[in-house]
Computed example of a mutant assay.
Amino acid sequence: MAVEMKYDDPIQQKKYEDFLSHIESGGKIEADDWMPEDYRNTLIKLISMHAISEIMGALPEKEWTPKAPSLKRKLGIMAKVQDEMGHGQLLLRVAEDLMKPIGKNREDIMRDLFSGDLKFHNVFHMKTKTWADAGLVGWLVDGAAIITQTNMLDASYAPYARALKRIAAEEVFHAQHGEAIIMALSEGTEQQKEMVQEALTRWWPALLMFFGPPSAKTTGTSKQDTTIKYKIRKNTNEELRQYFFTKYVPRVLSLGLTIPDETISYNEATGEWTYQQPDWSEFKQIISNNGPMSKERLRLRKLSYDNNEWVREALGATAILQ
């Protein structure tokens, strides 16, 4: 478990103990409340990563907006992309409030993204090769996101919990949008069914990786103990992945699709799924910006950021004049 902090200053130590007692009893922390440094840093890293993942996550689907098979599908995916960008902006504001006391702002978040210091979810480094990929991203990737987000709806940091309530509600519509695409393809021609199966086979390892490694022993990089200790989240990565299996494996099989893992099975005695672990060394490579589309997506994000610098400068000048 995460190591308890110790302060040399007894006043600070008392604040820390009162803080822990407050969140242990279900109390909430606001942006201007006292908080331990590692609590603040953990939140900044988590919320910044979530914000950037929402924004970077819009890019794979944006690629399919002009190629959607009908006007209805085009409007649906455009609305989804707009929502994801809005989620990113909302979360960036939450992160900025945490960063102000330590003299940092949104510019620092973007610099960390472009330098590689700030990671984003592994799934958004992947290619979307077909329309079935666009459907799977909506159905299973957003489905996985809903599981992780609802796990934090009662987070001890109140501004994040409030933002998550809005985001998770909208993600439900995104998952339904993706499921509708997959169901239509699964009930279509043999070629369409094969396209869905091929997409599922390619995306399965990335979906398992979405929740992160089971424990720090797997990769040596897990921070889940700290977030659980501080009541930011309730469940471990593995518990969330098990819930994903329970919710989605039966649905996938009901569509006549095959899970690309011959070992996967449910153990009635233990109440857990047995499955083949993904390659966690590959996961580390992907989130280190060495995935199939990492460089291209970062290039597009940097291009957009640089091209709109004049807008930020104009807004800054307006704020000064006011």
Results as ranks from 00 to 15, higher is better:
M152K: 06
M152T: 08
M152A: 13
M152D: 09
L153V: 12
D154V: 14
A155T: 09
A155C: 11
S156C: 02
Y157M: 05
Y157F: 15
Y157A: 02
P159M: 05
A161V: 08
A161M: 03
R162N: 15
L164N: 07
L164T: 03
K165A: 14
R166P: 13
R166D: 14
I167D: 03
I167P: 00
A168Q: 06
A168N: 12
A169V: 06
E170Q: 03
E170M: 06
E171N: 06
E171L: 01
E171C: 06
E171Q: 06
E171Y: 07
F173A: 13
F173Y: 10
F173L: 15
F173N: 12
H174N: 02
A175K: 13
A175S: 12
Q176W: 09
H177S: 03
H177G: 01
H177P: 00
G178Q: 10
A180M: 08
A180Q: 12
I181W: 04
M183C: 10
A184D: 14
A184G: 07
A184Q: 12
A184V: 11
L185I: 02
S186D: 03
S186V: 01
T189Q: 05
E190M: 11
Q191E: 14
K193A: 04
K193N: 08
K193Q: 13
E194C: 07
M195T: 07
V196C: 00
E198P: 04
E198Y: 00
E198I: 01
A199D: 02
L200D: 02
T201P: 07
R202G: 09
R202L: 04
W204A: 00
A206F: 14
L207C: 13
L207G: 03
L208C: 14
L208W: 06
L208M: 15
M209Y: 14
M209W: 15
M209C: 12
F210Q: 13
F211C: 12
F211G: 06
F211K: 03
F211T: 11
G212S: 10
G212N: 11
P213Q: 05
P213V: 00
P213C: 14
P213I: 04
P214L: 05
P214A: 04
S215M: 05
S215G: 09
S215I: 02
A216E: 09
K217F: 09
T218D: 15
T218R: 09
G220W: 00
G220Y: 00
T221Q: 10
T221F: 00
K223Q: 09
Q224C: 04
T226H: 02
T226A: 14
T227S: 06
I228D: 03
I228E: 03
K229Q: 13
K229P: 08
Y230Q: 05
Y230H: 07
K231E: 10
K231Y: 10
K231H: 15
I232P: 05
I232A: 08
N235P: 00
N235S: 08
N235M: 02
N235E: 01
T236H: 02
T236E: 02
E238D: 14
E239Q: 15
L240G: 10
Q242N: 13
Q242Y: 02
F244P: 04
F245V: 05
T246C: 10
T246K: 12
Y248H: 11
Y248S: 12
V249P: 01
P250W: 08
R251G: 06
R251W: 04
L253Q: 15
S254Q: 14
